Structures are given as C-alpha cells and as structure tokens.
Computed example of a mutant assay.
Amino acid sequence: MFTGIITDIGRIAEAHRRPGADTVFVVDSRYDLASLSMGASIAHQGVCLTLIGFEAIEGGSRWRVQVSEETCRLTTARDWEVGTLLNLERALKMGDELGGHLVSGHVDGLGTVVSVHEEHESHRVVIDVPTHLAKYVAPKGSICVDGVSLTVNEVDDTCFGINIIPHTWTVTTLGRLKPGVHVNLEADQVARYVERILSRAG
C-alpha cells in the first residue's frame, strides 16, 4: 500500500526485454541501501514492483525489478527504456503519515494528456481517461497519476483537469508532461467500493 507521495525520482539504468518473457529493469535511486530489502515493494510511476536484487552505488542504491508481459502491456512500462525517469515511493508502514490517499499500486488504465498550460504559478493539466474508469473520477475526489496523489478539479465527460503546484511539478516526473503522453492511472479505492455497493444494492 502507498500514499501517492513521491520520495525520489529514479532512473532506468538497464532494460532487458526478451520476446515472450518478463522484462527486467535495473533502476538507480538515491534511497539508502539500508532501507531496502529483498522482496520489498516499491511503486514505480504508480506500478507496484518487487525488488529481486539490489546493491549500493555512489549516492544511493541500484535494484532490479521483474515486470510481466501483462504489466508492460497495460502500463507505461511498455515504453520504459534506459534513461527513463520514474516516480518512486516505498511501501507504507504502520504508523507512517498518510499524506496523500490510499494507493494500491495496481494501475487501472492509461490516460492520455490532452493539454498542459500554466495557470498563475501552477500548471493545469487535462487528461482523457478510458471509458471504464470515467465513472470513478469525480470533482474534488482523489486520483493517482503516474504514482502521484492528486485532486480532481473538474470533470467533463471522459476528461478531467488537475492543478499541479510548483513543488509537485518540480519533484516528480509530472513536470515533463505534454499533450499526447500516456500516464498510469489508479482510481480512488473508496470510489470503487461505493460503486460496487451501489451496483449490488440496485
């Protein structure tokens, strides 16, 4: 479980893709090696992945994660390559501050950035979502975009708008968004449960 509060930006150092097999990525980060453990879960661009090996490097740590064909097909992992920057978040521990909202790290689908423009000191971003996810997006509700917990400002059919403050724009990969780019989306879990309850009640 995660909160959508990014604690580092990692960089893919190696990408090993083989036809008909899982992909292995090697990721560099500034995380202290002592804070990592074999089998630990770390969210990469909102995708929960398991560490299968790690080592110390100058200024931080390097680890390996194995990504299934399905995950590559359904998330932006299909486009990751050497040099790709990734929002990172370690799994939530009991007693940690819940600064964003509860995030599982299971991506529901890919959104497409429609527009990006400056609005005062912040940036307003409009994202188009798959039809099956649109029902979970509500004004002032939460949504996870590339691993970042954000508040939905407005909704228009299958599009929603978010306002990204300068801090978030700078310390996450969201500052690289532009029209046409795909982003990983995870709907608010509360919205999912409410929809499930209402559908069964009806």
Rank of each mutant, 00 (worst) to 15 (best):
M1L: 13
G4F: 15
D8W: 09
D8Q: 06
I9T: 15
R11T: 14
A13M: 00
A15C: 10
A15E: 04
R17Y: 11
R18N: 13
P19C: 14
G20S: 06
A21G: 04
D22G: 04
D22M: 04
V24G: 00
F25A: 06
F25G: 06
V27F: 02
V27G: 00
D28M: 03
S29V: 11
S29I: 11
R30K: 13
R30F: 07
Y31Q: 04
D32W: 01
D32P: 08
L33E: 12
A34H: 14
S35R: 06
L36G: 01
S37K: 05
S37E: 07
M38F: 15
G39F: 15
A40G: 03
A40L: 12
S41I: 09
I42M: 01
I42P: 02
I42C: 04
A43P: 01
H44S: 09
H44K: 01
Q45N: 13
Q45V: 11
V47K: 03
V47Q: 05
L49R: 07
L49A: 12
T50L: 08
T50F: 11
T50V: 09
L51E: 02
G53E: 08
E55P: 02
A56T: 08
A56L: 14
E58M: 12
G59N: 05
G60R: 11
S61P: 10
R62L: 05
Q66I: 03
V67G: 02
S68Y: 07
E70Q: 11
E70W: 00
T71Q: 10
R73W: 01
T75H: 08
R78A: 09
D79S: 08
D79V: 12
W80G: 05
V82F: 04
V82A: 08
T84K: 08
N87T: 11
L88E: 04
R90L: 15
A91H: 05
A91G: 00
M94W: 13
G95R: 10
D96P: 03
G99T: 10
G100P: 01
H101V: 04
L102N: 00
V103A: 11
S104G: 07
G105T: 09
D108N: 05
D108H: 09
T112Y: 03
S115N: 13
V116S: 05
E118R: 15
E119G: 02
H123P: 09
H123K: 12
V125T: 13
V125L: 07
V125Q: 08
V126S: 15
D128H: 11
D128Q: 13
D128R: 14
D128K: 12
V129Y: 06
V129W: 06
T131L: 13
L133K: 02
A134H: 00
Y136V: 01
G141H: 06
C144K: 06
D146S: 10
D146F: 12
V148E: 04
T151Y: 01
N153H: 09
N153Q: 06
E154W: 13
V155F: 05
D156R: 06
F160N: 06
G161V: 01
I165E: 00
I165H: 02
P166E: 12
P166D: 06
T168P: 01
W169I: 10
W169M: 12
T170I: 13
T170W: 11
T170H: 11
V171M: 14
T173C: 03
L174T: 13
G175F: 14
L177R: 04
K178G: 12
K178E: 15
P179S: 14
P179K: 14
G180S: 10
V190T: 02
V190K: 08
R192K: 15
E195S: 14
R196C: 03
I197M: 15
L198R: 01
S199I: 00
